[in-house]
């Protein structure tokens, strides 16, 4: 195991290397794939903080993406507030909503929590369509193209890709730090056995709230970055069920409750998604059909996901065929 300084240094080097590589890519389509891969990785990693570590299986994270995107876009076009500030405001709104959901769901568990999060996300979707004075309804909001750092608007696609990469790195760093501290152990204890954790004195309620609020904040920031990248938002693009299901799916396939799992899930699934959309554009829904199939396959047969299985295979190989417990 690397020492803490060594970890930060090596992670920093990897990020720097990737930034250098990004500027070598000239093909716009590849850059788009990279952006989407990093973007989905960040949403998955953010979802994983509450879904993977705290065992709060939300299928309503689209609400946070939407709040982040809409807060940023509306503050920007109506009051000329810089998106950098807008995304923090969106993050805070999302955190508040997550706090509210967390408080009302203190007594419910498992599927009921999932259902409430779906219902809240649907409520927000309906509101975004109906409250036309605020959100322009289904017409959507177009963002003006005024390049500059203050406006978080760039001529080169590379800059967006780097931005998304740095954001993923930030969430990874937060997760990794959390894992090594008391909160990480608390959360894993809650996920494994809530009653036992409570009996041992783990502040279950507070820890769950903390994880969901953090997850919501980060998801909203991701939504803001996405809005600035596509420059046009509407309820169907930023509040769709896809934003709720895909982060969960990527975390599960990559490895639920591991720091690298969600990133690996996105690195495998996002390019696959783009490829399927590009090559089979005449077949609607093929990507989601395959996603659904993979999801069923993984939860039934490899519920730990890709990353823990890969680690196990690697350990087995290193120890010369003897299986070791991680």
């Amino acid at each position: 195991m690397l020492k803490k300084g060594g970890f930060v240094l090596s992670a920093g080097l990897v990020v720097l290397l990737m930034v250098a590589l990004i500027y070598q890519i000239k093909n716009k389509y590849y850059l788009d794939i990279l952006f989407m891969t990093f973007f989905w990785a960040s949403l998955a990693a953010a979802w994983n903080i509450s879904g993977g570590y705290a065992g709060q299986f939300s299928l309503g994270h689209a609400a946070y993406v939407g709040i982040g995107a809409y807060s940023t876009a509306l503050l920007y076009i109506n009051f000329h507030v810089s998106p950098w500030i807008g995304m923090v405001v969106g993050g805070l709104f999302s955190a508040l909503l997550a706090l509210f959901i967390g408080v009302i769901t203190v007594k419910v568990r498992g599927p009921f929590y999932t259902l409430i999060t779906i219902a809240v996300a649907e409520l927000l979707y309906i509101s975004a369509i109906q409250l036309k004075e605020l959100t322009h309804g289904s017409e959507g909001v177009s963002l003006p193209f005024k390049p500059g750092w203050v406006n978080m608007t760039f001529r080169e696609r590379e800059t967006y890709v780097v931005l998304a990469l740095l954001f993923v790195a930030l969430i990874y760093f937060i997760t990794k730090t959390m894992e090594r501290r008391r909160i990480g152990y608390y959360l894993i204890a809650i996920r494994e056995n809530e009653d036992a954790a409570r009996a041992l004195g783990v502040p279950v309620k507070e820890m769950k709230l903390l994880a969901t609020v953090l997850s919501a904040f980060l998801t909203a920031v991701g939504g803001a970055i996405y809005a600035m990248y596509i420059m046009f938002i509407e309820p169907d693009s930023v509040l769709s069920f896809a934003f709720s299901i895909q982060p969960a799916l990527m975390s599960i396939i990559g490895g639920l409750g591991t720091s690298l799992g969600p990133l690996i899930g996105s690195f495998v699934l996002s390019p696959l998604d783009m490829f399927l959309r590009e090559s089979f554009s005449h077949i609607n829904g093929l990507n989601l059909l395959i996603y659904g199939f993979l999801l069923v396959l993984f939860v039934l047969f490899w519920p730990e996901g890709l990353w823990p299985n890969a680690v196990r295979v690697y350990r087995k190989w290193r120890s010369g065929g003897v299986e070791t417990k991680s």
Partner: peptide
């Protein structure tokens, strides 16, 4: 999580 995501999938 297995029950939820198997049926969701």
């Amino acid at each position: 999580e297995v029950q939820i995501f198997a049926t969701v999938g």
